[in-house]
Design a protein around this nucleic acid. Structure first.
Length: 422
RNA sequence: GCGGACGUGGUGAAGUUGGUUAACACACCAGAUUGUGGCUCUGGCAUUUCGUGGGUUCGAGCCCCAUCGUUCGCCCCA
């Protein structure tokens, strides 16, 4: 019997895990820099957390991993980060006990039953933030800044920021009406999907890959923003300018879920290695979500970064400079391993990373191992050394070799390392 | 969910209209060099085995069907 990973899932092996950790460690640093606390919510929630009753999005139903362990409760593996965090925000009444806004960040696995593709797995990881409890253009700009400067600090070049506004509730409702009025007489000219989108969410027609280049869509009316909403967007752009964040306005950028209001944004890759999954991260402001989740009427904003996609891009731009290194490798030529074993442990107790040879192999083979492991120092132990209570120590950088007494070993290693860096 | 491509050792891969011994390279192991690696040379290295299961054939890695997986695009991307 042989097994393999479930379609769309993968093992994160040590080499890749190192890169993964670089990405998440830096993200945690950024959370800290901007005053975000890390949160972990359950991997599964009641299905209702992710699926609202009057959700008009196209996808939510078929792409979720929903199950019922007892035939009663409907549970779902989380397909995204925001809903669970907002549920937690409301459930723990964070809006009451603390100064607002509350800033939360997460790095967690998500599950979507989609057809796998490059940069799209069924289990994948997102790093995201949510800033909940207040609405101000400064916050929007800061949220984008956190994501943008994170990406930049990683060293990525081929990315650009797209922003748009979906307007506040008032302007948006009016815009939906305007669009329906505009498209209705031309319904036949739209693709099949867009004809149904017209009823549910006409905003998505603007984002349609089939129709987006048609004159009909190009000439569609723009949103008439309310005065407040227009000013809000102007302020966000102004603050981005102040922060030195370059952006493009993409008035057809309409994030998939319809809980977004006002500011929406995406960071996309212009590197072809990303394939068709070019969006590295996306997010936006949501005025209504907290209330829909049973909380007070307060606004929030957040984004999520697809870590696997980010990793693909980082590999393509070769931003990782990873060298595994080991301080000491203990070669043992003696029949009895006791001496070598105790030396290895003594080194580790003194914070030197150390590996040793486990079984009888030729000296040459053991040296090869030490080289593969990129060991700085090679310690040779044979009958003579055991008898005399010494270690033959070889510095692989200077190739110098010396005999060291056992109780002077760690001091000597410290000294050699210091000397080298001077 | 739909359409195209692909699936050969640890890795990258050759394999011509089905024809008998699955190339080549890297990596790995051993030796030359019996306590000193990196270079060189020599030898070894795919349990009838080509994702898996059936079928056609005297004969299949090559053809057919199914299945699993990967990949590119569509859909979607919370």
């Amino acid at each position: 019997m042989s097994y393999q990973t479930v379609k769309g899932t993968y093992d994160l092996l040590p080499d890749r895990m190192v890169k993964f950790n670089i990405l998440s460690d830096l993200f945690r640093q950024f959370l800290n820099l901007y005053g975000y606390g890390e949160i972990k919510t359950p991997v599964f929630e009641y299905t209702g957390v992710f699926q609202k009753e009057n959700d008009t999005s196209d996808m939510v139903t078929k792409e979720m991993y929903t199950f019922s362990p007892n035939g009663k409760d409907s549970l779902t593996l989380r397909p995204e980060g925001t809903a669970g965090v907002i549920r937690s925000f409301v459930e723990n009444k964070m809006y009451g006990n603390n100064e607002l806004p509350i800033k939360l960040g997460y790095i967690e696995e998500m599950f979507r039953h989609e057809r796998p593709q490059k940069g799209r797995q069924r289990q994948f990881t997102q790093m995201g933030i949510e800033c909940v409890g207040d609405k101000d253009p400064l916050i929007d700009a800061e949220v984008i800044a956190l994501g943008y400067f994170y990406i930049k600090t990683l060293g990525l070049q081929s990315v650009k920021v797209l922003i748009n506004t979906l307007g506040d509730n008032e302007s948006r409702l009016q815009y939906k009406k305007d669009l329906i009025d505009y498209f209705a007489p031309h319904k036949d000219e739209l693709c099949y999907d867009c004809q149904t989108r017209m009823e549910k969410n006409p905003l998505r027609i603007l984002d349609c890959k089939i129709d987006r280049d048609s004159d009909l869509v190009k000439n569609a009316p723009k949103m008439k923003l309310t005065e407040n909403s227009a000013k809000y967007f102007e302020d966000v752009k102004h603050y981005l300018d102040v922060l030195g964040i370059p952006y493009e306005i993409d008035d057809r950028l309409v994030r998939g879920l319809d809980y977004y209001t006002d500011t929406v944004f995406e960071v996309v890759s212009t590197n072809e290695a990303s394939g068709s999954q070019a969006t590295i991260f996306g997010g936006g402001r949501y005025d209504n979500l907290v209330k829909e989740m049973g909380g007070p009427e307060i606004s929030g904003i957040g984004f999520a970064i697809g870590v696997e996609r980010l990793l693909i891009l980082c590999d393509a731009e070769e931003i990782f400079d990873i060298k595994n290194s080991l301080d000491c490798y203990v070669i043992n030529l003696n029949e009895d391993p006791d001496y070598a074993l105790s030396i290895a442990e003594e080194l580790r107790n003194n914070s030197f990373s150390c590996e040793m040879n486990y079984y009888k192999r030729s000296l040459k083979a053991q040296f090869k191992s030490s080289e593969r492991k990129n060991a700085r120092f090679v310690l040779i132990i044979g009958e003579d050394e055991v008898k005399e209570g010494t270690i033959t120590l070889k510095d692989t950088l200077t190739k110098a070799q010396e005999s060291v007494k056992r109780d002077e070993l760690t001091d000597r290693l410290d000294q050699l390392m210091e000397d080298y860096y001077e």
